[in-house]
Amino acid sequence: MKRKTVFWLALFAVLAALGAGTYLLRGVAGRRAVVSVDGEPMRTVDLTAAAVPYEFTVETDYGRNTVRVSQGRIAVVDADCPNRDCVKQGTISDGAIPIVCLPHHLVIQIED
């Protein structure tokens, strides 16, 4: 019994460490952000050329998202979906985690 507990603890610890390692490796800052809907790139944003923050709107049949770009960072600041998870997610500045707006099939990923 004891040995089994140790076995599972060790296995999960190794898996968790591997996952965290991959996450950290991918967490490097990128130079551009790709905004896509249904997997189709809608707009590519140069994050290094945003000394003055600006906003733009992505409007599709699914709905509307307002995106704010500042130096090296990007965020969804407004959306007309009910749960607004993408807005709550806040600003991203690296490739570790994309911004996803599920109701509007929208993904924002940072690439190098």
């Binding site: 898996l15 591997l18 991959t22 896509s36 997997g39 985690i97 994309p98 599920l102 993904v107």
Partner: peptide, 21 residues
Amino acid sequence: AVTKTPGLFWYGPALLTSAIV
């Protein structure tokens, strides 16, 4: 499936870690 963006699978390892914890 919804966003048709297979690139999201890169987020998998991070989700694995969070799921274990």
